[in-house]
Amino acid sequence: MMNGMERLTAAINGTLADRIPVFCNLLDQGAKELGLSIKEYYASGEHVAEAQLRMRAKYGYDCLWSLFYVGKEAELLGCRKIIYAKDGPPNVGEMVIKKNDDISRLQVPDDITSHPAFAEELKCLRILKAEAGGKYPVCAYLTASMTMPALLMGMEKWMQMLMMGPAGLRDELLTKCSDFFQKQVAAYRAAGADVLVYSNPFGSTDFIPRTFFDEISLPWMESDLAPGGTAGVVYYCGSARFNDVIESVIQNLGIGVFYLSPMDDIAEGKKIVAGRGVTCGVINDIMLLEWSKEEIRAEVKRMIEAGKPGGKFLFGTLVMPYAIPEENIRTMLEAAYEYGRFDSE
């Protein structure tokens, strides 16, 4: 049997594998796995690493996550309050930027790796690399410069500043967030992360009009990615659709992996990528709370039939809600392993 890294490499190179790679993004579920509250769980990188390894072994999927929760990035930029729920992901509980003046005061740490908020994640990454390095890809999650302000000032204020200015202040903030991104991506690469999920809802025309994408989103994405390059980078718009910008992303940014929205047409996405990269079909995992076994299997089948022919395809989930029953996770995965098989083609 092949391992996750071999399957992923085969998908990237378009060579043969036993089946398509399957990425199942279980985060908060790790707490359940270890019998801890979500707050206790995220206090330690050892917890997260252990649960990531255990869940991967238990379910047999192909990825490991160094991500705790997205709000951690705000902690690196000064947020000191995280709100924990008993049955859902932690959230940013304090806005680092409360008023416009706070933007000039915002400081991007020179060395992210020495920041206390990064220490546990680094610990987690080291364990994952030591235990599974080279066998299962270790994924890191990074928020694009244009989306980062949502975590620092809230989507509401950010949307207002992005659309209505003042433009000078907006650009000052974006410059800092892009600097932060560049440092973060370098730190993750140095720590051995294999897959770098580049998250940017503002890279989707569900969020901004096409002209805005061309004139503003693209240049900031170029700024984020230019220094470090696009090796291992995955284009992801936080589950918003992006088939209509794939061509531009390939041409202008050179990214080679596309983590579609569940609302994107997989076959269409794959046709646009046209062998120049890996297309990831992503299930609407919120429905795993409701669907029957038959419905889950039918959906997985539909998705894989749309994306598998010709290879260079991966099956994935979004951020799996905490309340999804284990049985439904298994049903989805078993269907993905079954329909995703390459029978001596």
Binding site: M159, Q160, M163, M164, T205, D206, F207, I208, P209
Partner: peptide
């Protein structure tokens, strides 16, 4: 016909 979130936001605003 695809109206983006930014357009919703601005229309409402």
């Amino acid at each position: 016909q695809g109206v983006s979130l930014a357009q919703h936001f601005m229309a409402a605003q």
